[in-house]
Computed example of a mutant assay.
Amino acid sequence: MCLGVPGQIVKIGDNALQLASVDVCGVQREVNISLICDDDPQALLGKWVLVHVGFAMSIIDEDEAKQTQEALLAMSQLEHEVGDFLGLNQK
């Protein structure tokens, strides 16, 4: 399964062909912004985006981003608990 992950643009280059730094749950990664940048890339600073395979695919609002982050974290916790239940996460 492929997921888009929400992140916030925290640093940006001078043009849409450069990479931007996106913060995803405290981890910063470089992503390509060419798919979402129509004009001045600096206008994207602070925006929330949906990141998939190194590309910012779309701009999303902060509430949607935070709800998605919470859901992804909950799914991760549920996966761990199901693994424990099935005996997959034995130490």
Score class of each variant (00 low, 15 high):
37 C>T: 06
35 L>P: 01
83 G>H: 02
47 K>R: 14
79 E>Y: 11
1 M>H: 12
52 H>D: 12
57 M>A: 14
2 C>P: 10
25 C>L: 10
32 N>I: 05
55 F>W: 07
24 V>R: 10
60 I>K: 00
27 V>L: 11
4 G>V: 14
58 S>G: 12
36 I>P: 00
65 A>T: 04
64 E>R: 08
67 Q>I: 13
69 Q>M: 08
79 E>K: 13
22 V>P: 02
74 A>P: 06
57 M>W: 08
24 V>C: 14
44 L>W: 02
32 N>D: 05
70 E>A: 15
88 L>D: 05
73 L>P: 01
79 E>L: 14
26 G>I: 03
16 A>Q: 04
23 D>Y: 03
85 F>Y: 05
40 D>S: 11
9 I>Y: 00
49 V>H: 00
56 A>C: 03
87 G>H: 04
69 Q>I: 12
48 W>D: 01
53 V>E: 12
72 L>Q: 11
58 S>C: 14
35 L>K: 08
19 L>N: 02
61 D>G: 04
13 G>P: 02
2 C>T: 13
61 D>T: 04
54 G>N: 09
46 G>F: 01
6 P>N: 13
50 L>D: 05
26 G>R: 01
67 Q>R: 08
88 L>N: 06
26 G>K: 03
32 N>A: 12
9 I>N: 02
53 V>T: 10
74 A>H: 11
46 G>N: 09
47 K>H: 13
85 F>N: 11
65 A>C: 04
74 A>K: 07
84 D>P: 05
27 V>I: 15
80 H>E: 06
69 Q>G: 05
90 Q>I: 12
64 E>G: 13
15 N>T: 04
3 L>N: 06
10 V>W: 02
33 I>W: 00
79 E>S: 15
85 F>P: 04
30 E>N: 08
48 W>I: 01
13 G>W: 07
40 D>E: 08
68 T>A: 07
16 A>T: 04
61 D>Q: 04
38 D>R: 07
31 V>H: 01
31 V>D: 02
79 E>G: 15
27 V>S: 11
27 V>Y: 01
73 L>Q: 09
72 L>N: 11
91 K>V: 14
23 D>Q: 08
14 D>P: 03
70 E>F: 10
76 S>A: 15
43 A>D: 02
58 S>L: 08
42 Q>T: 09
6 P>E: 11
45 L>T: 04
63 D>A: 15
34 S>C: 12
21 S>G: 15
57 M>C: 14
41 P>I: 13
42 Q>L: 10
86 L>I: 08
13 G>K: 03
85 F>C: 13
85 F>L: 12
30 E>R: 06
39 D>E: 15
87 G>A: 11
